[in-house]
Design a protein around this nucleic acid. Structure first.
Length: 596
RNA sequence: GCCCUGAUAGCUCAAUUGGAUAGAGCAACGGCCUUCUAAGCCGUAGGUUAUGGGUUCGAGUCCCGUUCAGGGUACCA
């Protein structure tokens, strides 16, 4: 039981006894005492003053006296203005440590047989270009959310919808056909997704050139954009693809296979994975069927040019295109099909889409369309909408070459981690293989923590030159602390020290007391991270407990403590912190090194 | 035009969901390694929370106006 919940009950009883009324739960607000005041937990008196019919100070004093007299957990109190500060007994804090020490999975909820199944869609790449920094945020958030939900006892299926078809894919295919000269990942040594991405850029350059030319010949911009030879060829290619043209399909298969190999390598490096992958090429037809069914049932309507639309004006929205006049499907069409297939494949309790906030409108419409098609779960789809990653120069644009490539970024960071590690000489005893593993771990820790510590809903700025730091509020700072604690614990083991419980009769140092308070919050933080869909909550907590531990570590010795009772307690404290770091950072997808 | 978001220290981010004197890190400056890992610890400096009003015991947080920024409103995805 959490101290705030316990005190909430006790204070409610105190108020009933003292003032003869029962306060609503929302009136009994508790918070951590600010460190400039004495005490552990603070009760804000103001909301009940009106009913107590006494001054805030007097009200606080009476409740404080009652609690000290009637509650064994409360040792002392003081009142500042309308704030009642309560000091909790050492016995209670030591009890927290015993509980945390007893369970390696402290703070986590074990999965039960009847737990809700949550499906999380994330990553969702297009197969026409390599992954960049924006995808990294998506992948890290998706993976981390899945781990956080598992930590809260949910069953989770991680899924990926690969956008492997459509006009954008045909652009790369067309460019390769025109100018590829038979180049492959094998004969060039270029990673498959990068090779295909290069052709996508090539197409765009050619397309722009043609538009310019047509406009010089007097054509209006819009007409030029629709009549450039290369775009006409690409549209023809998409029609052929949808008609199962053999040559087109085999080109498509070949180029996609290059991309998948590239993506797999990036995912592996990033440490993310999926339980089930859907391909748009396998779901869009189901979407088309759904749209046609909707048309037949009169839910949707058709224009004279035979394009199919949904009228969303009753919802306060516009009309939405669902099938083009040439019968080909759009983005929305496939998402309808994918959703339907997923709910047929799995007993989904909750469907979460990890997709950027630029698609808020898309998901609002998707939910409405599925509802119109008669799916009762349509309105329950949850769009986890996260903010964009911006560069100091502004938004990333693939076609303008202002993207930070995912593979390059990870490789660069590994180099920096290695350079720094070698300068510090920390890993000298390790084999080259182990050292490399550790440098990768540190580089990844820095990148992942940097991205996940920010509130996911907000846009964030990433400066490739300056953003990656290994000191201060960073992943490596937390990893370093973990390694330091592990080192102490290894030494304790070597000298045959083991921790004995219970911990009784110990006078607590200030830093120890703070750590115990923070430890007591962990289960709540894990729960909050899931409730708020926010890895950032966990990240910030891990930083806070790390900072506190380092202060404690600096001020007090663990192994050299001469009082065996204290040494025993500090070893247990260290072990609990190390477990929390491993578990908390683990839910962010960040590994903790044994030494660094 | 209309509809969402957002704006906190020079920079990157927090702020227990309306609570006390708005906190961290980076960058700058100054200290601390003969003792469990200095990727650490301590200190100095840095703020009219974009701006003007309002609501109340109390506002970075809620409401209205203004400014600026990002996104959406595609037969792009």
């Amino acid at each position: 039981m959490n101290i705030e919940i316990l005190l909430q009950e006790k204070i409610t009883i105190a108020i009933e006894a003292l003032f003869g009324f029962t306060p609503e739960k929302s009136m009994v607000q508790l918070q951590q005492t600010r460190k400039e005041f004495a005490g552990d937990v603070t009760f804000v008196v103001f909301p009940v003053v009106r009913f107590a019919k006494k001054s805030p100070e007097e009200t606080g004093r009476l409740i404080g006296e009652y609690l000290v007299g009637n509650t064994e957990e409360v040792d002392q109190f003081n009142v500042v203005k309308g704030f009642l500060n309560l000091t909790i007994s050492n016995h209670w804090w030591l009890g927290i440590l015993e509980k945390a020490f007893a369970s390696p999975s402290y703070g986590l909820t074990p999965a039960s047989q009847d737990a809700e199944l949550v499906m999380i869609e994330y990553s969702s790449p297009n197969t026409n270009k390599p992954l960049h920094l924006g995808h990294i945020r998506n992948n890290l958030l998706g993976y981390s959310l899945a781990e956080i939900l598992k930590g809260n006892g949910k069953k989770v299926v991680k899924t990926n919808i690969v956008n492997d078809r459509g006009i954008h894919i045909c652009k790369s295919m067309y460019a390769w056909q025109q100018w590829g000269e038979g180049r492959t990942p094998e004969n060039t040594g270029i990673k498959g997704d990068h090779l295909v991405g290069d052709f996508y850029v090539m197409f765009d350059q050619q397309y722009k050139k043609e538009i310019r030319q047509l406009m010089e010949e007097g054509m209006a911009q819009e007409a030029a954009e629709n009549n450039a030879p290369s775009i006409l060829a690409v549209r023809e290619m998409l029609r052929k693809w949808e008609a199962h043209d053999e040559e087109t399909v085999s080109l498509w298969k070949m180029m996609n296979s290059w991309v998948y190999e590239g993506f797999d390598a990036t995912y592996r490096e990033l440490g993310v994975d999926f339980d089930k992958i859907y391909y748009e090429s396998e779901t869009y037809l189901s979407g088309k069927d759904e749209v046609l069914r909707g048309l037949k049932e009169g839910v949707f309507y058709q224009k004279p040019d035979s394009s199919v639309w949904a009228d969303l004006t009753p919802e306060g929205l516009d009309h939405k295109l669902l099938l083009r006049s040439d019968g080909t499907s759009v983005y929305m069409t496939q998402d309808i099909g994918t959703a339907k297939m997923r709910f047929a494949d799995y007993p989904i309790g909750k469907m979460v889409y990890v997709v950027g906030n630029e698609q808020n409108y898309h998901f609002q419409v998707l939910a409405i369309l599925l509802d119109m098609l008669g799916y009762e779960w349509g309105r329950d789809l949850f769009h986890f909408s996260y903010g964009m990653v911006e560069l100091p120069s502004g938004k990333m644009k693939s076609r303008e070459g202002t993207v930070v490539d995912a593979d390059d970024l990870m490789a660069d960071m590994e180099k920096v981690a290695r350079k720094m590690g070698e300068e510090l000489g920390k890993l000298e005893g390790l084999s080259e293989e182990e050292a490399t593993r550790t440098y990768k771990m540190i580089a990844k820790g820095a990148l992942k923590y940097f991205i996940l510590k920010v509130d996911p809903r907000k846009n964030m700025t990433f400066n490739p030159e300056e953003s990656i730091d290994f000191n201060g509020n960073t992943g490596p700072f937390i990893q370093y602390t973990h390694a330091r604690i592990r080192s102490v614990l290894r030494k304790a083991e070597e000298t045959g020290l083991s921790v004995a419980v219970p911990f009784a009769g110990i006078s607590l140092e200030e830093k120890e007391r703070e750590l115990l308070k923070t430890i007591s919050l962990y289960p709540e933080i894990v729960e909050e991270a899931a409730r708020e869909y926010s890895p950032a909550v966990l990240a910030n907590y891990c930083y806070e407990i790390t900072r506190q531990f380092n202060q404690f570590y600096h001020d007090h010795s663990i192994l050299n403590e001469t009082d065996p009772v204290k040494r025993n307690f500090r070893l247990a404290l260290s072990e609990v912190v190390v477990n929390i770091l491993k578990s908390g950072m683990g839910m962010l997808g960040i590994e903790m090194p044994e030494r660094m």
